[in-house]
Design a protein around this nucleic acid. Structure first.
Lengths: 144, 144
DNA sequence: CCGCATCCTCTCGGATACTG
DNA sequence: CAGTATCCGAGAGGATGCGG
């Protein structure tokens, strides 16, 4: 599957037609003489495609329920500040829910909403694909 | 479809089992007491999930063939420096090909490789989904 | 036209220390 | 335990000007 020659395949025109149809739905119009001033997709993506956000969502998908410090351990290298910021914006956008138990010491649990799980599914599709293709990419890098 | 109550749905256990199966393939092992030192997926994602990279790939998917300054116009706000850097790393990783015509003035054309088109497909799935869900996200933000 | 070099700004995110 | 506050450094990325 990962033969390098595949990088040079010719691309059939009908494939572009398919792509264009889907892209028109996303971008509304695709005329570069008239670029869109504001793109909500960019905005939404900027939260959800962040490196830490992706990992938070994937791990919450895997573990179902995680406390703050558990997440911090798993994510490996994230600071408290960054983690709480990312969690806050992900909660605000509806990807995850936060439950606080007024015990001493305090306990806070995070888990995906149904919406967050749907996003996790999409992310898994993407990262799984990427995981399969990474050999091709890495070998390609060495050639240069 | 975008009724806010869906954010509070209970998530069935079997759904988590499915997620976990797929995630184990990506992360290898999922024990936060033993976090992975290096994650190639993170590395690959950091190139391909960059804001400008995503837009470059999507627009090349839509237009099939674009010159440097055409891309710059479409992307709206990118600097020459950033654009040429992103193009270089995307070429290095095999997402797109660069053809230079030794005319005066010089002409350079970019287009997706077959590999890049497969990635574009994945990105379209993600951004199409995101485009459909963005109302939910934006309305959710206003509530806070 | 393409894109590099330089400079400079600004945001992201890490380290540390501190609170309820 | 779960954060917040403050400070700070690295790096991404914009602006401008030049060269092939």
């Amino acid at each position: 599957m990962s033969e390098p020659s595949s990088l040079n395949e010719t691309i059939a025109d009908y494939q572009y037609v398919e792509l264009q149809k889907k892209l028109k739905k996303i971008f509304g119009h695709l005329d570069y003489k008239n670029p869109p001033e504001v793109c909500p997709v960019r905005d939404v993506l900027s939260v959800a495609s962040n490196k830490w956000s992706i990992l938070i969502i994937l791990y919450l998908g895997a573990y179902k329920l995680l406390r703050f410090n558990e997440l911090k351990k798993i994510l490996y290298g994230v600071s408290s500040k960054t983690l709480s910021e990312k969690l806050k914006s992900l909660e605000r956008d509806g990807y995850l829910s936060r439950k606080q138990y007024s015990e001493v010491p305090i306990r806070v649990e995070y888990q995906l909403t149904a919406f967050g799980m749907r996003y996790a599914d999409k992310l898994i599709e993407l990262t799984t694909w990427m995981d399969n293709e990474k050999e091709l990419i890495l070998s390609n890098r060495k050639k240069n």
